[in-house]
Amino acid sequence: MKTVETGNGVRVMKNGGLDPNRISFDQIPIIDLEPMFTGDAAAKAQLAADLRRACTEVGFLYIRNHHVPQAVIDATFAAAHHYFALDDDAKMANHVTLSRNNRGYAALLEENTDPTARGDLHESFDIALDVPADDPDVVAGKVLYGPNQWPAGQPDFRAALEAYHKAMLTLSGRLLHAFALALDLEEDYFDALVTKPLATLRVLHYPPQFGEIDDRQIGIGAHSDYECFTILAQDSVSALQVLNTAGEWIAADPVPGCFVVNVGDQMARWTNDLFASTIHRAINRSGRERYSIPFFFGPNYDTVVEALPSCVDDEHPAKYPPISSGDYINGRFAATFAHYGKDTEAKA
């Protein structure tokens, strides 16, 4: 049996090779998000029940009727294709080591999500909430806040990513309302905790892998996400795999018109592990380039993440000590990125 170290402890998976089991998509449920836009109370209640079941039993789901315009999604994929085709010097001009707050470009193998592995076979570009350098939180040294950096002479790239980030913030608000209802809380319970969220948008490029593959070096190694939830847009290339409770890898192939959503470690802590933060990985053996767009959504830097009142009782005491959102994410980034937290005082 293999194990994966996460921010919430060690997980176990079977040594099942690189091939996922192909199962019908209804085993990774599809949730219709329309009730969160229409305001129908009965429909919201049904959605909340469906979401609760998906988050407790699977930790992964697809969402449809998310109201994000397809044009915004298509423009971001097109921007990613163009950007990652640039030469290495152009991309390295905005390397993450030039940012105090982990914004910009990272090359192949610079991220290592699985500590037992040898680096992830993808390249990425990250932005987050764009916070001015003179903002009090930035001045105070809360390094997850700060300005984005952008490649010179690429205005379409910036416009596409900023539009996508804005759309994801709106969608995340709707999703967070659904999560609150699924947890027997008031719909707006989380609103005051996400006024300045740690919300990171990443565009990813996975080159194809051919021949015999070392499972210690794949597109992205086995891991759980750190924030409350992730909203993922996939292109047509299948690569995402989800670890089920039997320790088997299940394919989470692209579904037209849907995003993939998965529970992150912070939501698992908030819910006292009622909601499952599920291990997943990506292996691109399609023979084609793969592009994906994850959006990682978490609460404000100073929000204290501790077991919610609806998730603890005498039989289910809190499993995790309280921790601020910023401290938690900083710790996970330090474990994942070789450059993170080093010489930050010298960076602009």
Rank of each mutant, 00 (worst) to 15 (best):
I250V: 13
L185R: 00
A167Y: 02
K319A: 14
E306Y: 09
A252P: 00
P29S: 03
G16Q: 10
S286N: 06
R103C: 02
R11W: 08
D235V: 03
E34D: 12
V58P: 04
L232A: 01
A152C: 11
I28P: 06
N330T: 11
T336A: 11
L121S: 08
L176E: 09
E111V: 08
N300M: 00
D273Y: 03
S99N: 05
N284W: 02
L144W: 00
H165F: 13
F60R: 03
T97H: 04
A54I: 02
R288N: 11
K342Q: 12
F297H: 12
N101Q: 04
V261R: 00
V203W: 01
D130K: 10
V260A: 01
Q234N: 02
P197W: 08
D265E: 13
V138S: 07
G341N: 09
A252C: 04
F297G: 09
V68G: 09
T271N: 07
F37K: 05
A252V: 00
Y226T: 11
T76P: 04
L98I: 08
V263C: 08
G219K: 07
A307C: 14
L193D: 15
H205M: 00
D235P: 02
R216C: 11
D50W: 01
A93T: 01
A85P: 07
P197A: 02
F296I: 11
R202V: 07
L109H: 14
R103F: 04
A79C: 06
P115F: 05
N262M: 09
Y328H: 10
A307Q: 08
V96M: 15
A79K: 10
N284E: 07
D50P: 06
A276H: 15
A335H: 05
A182H: 04
N272Y: 03
V139N: 02
H223C: 06
A192S: 13
E315C: 09
A49C: 11
S238D: 12
T56Q: 12
I279L: 14
A85R: 14
I23P: 03
N330H: 11
P29C: 08
F259D: 04
V4F: 07
E123D: 12
L144T: 01
A48T: 03
P20A: 01
A338E: 14
R64Q: 14
Q209C: 08
A192C: 07
E306L: 06
N21W: 08
F37E: 07
G211S: 12
L33N: 01
G17N: 05
S224C: 15
L185I: 02
P151Y: 10
A246R: 15
A133C: 00
D120R: 09
M168W: 03
D134A: 02
N21Q: 15
G146S: 04
F229D: 03
L198H: 00
R269H: 06
P20I: 01
T278Q: 06
A160L: 06
A93C: 00
E289V: 12
C55S: 11
T245P: 00
V237P: 05
Q234H: 01
H280I: 06
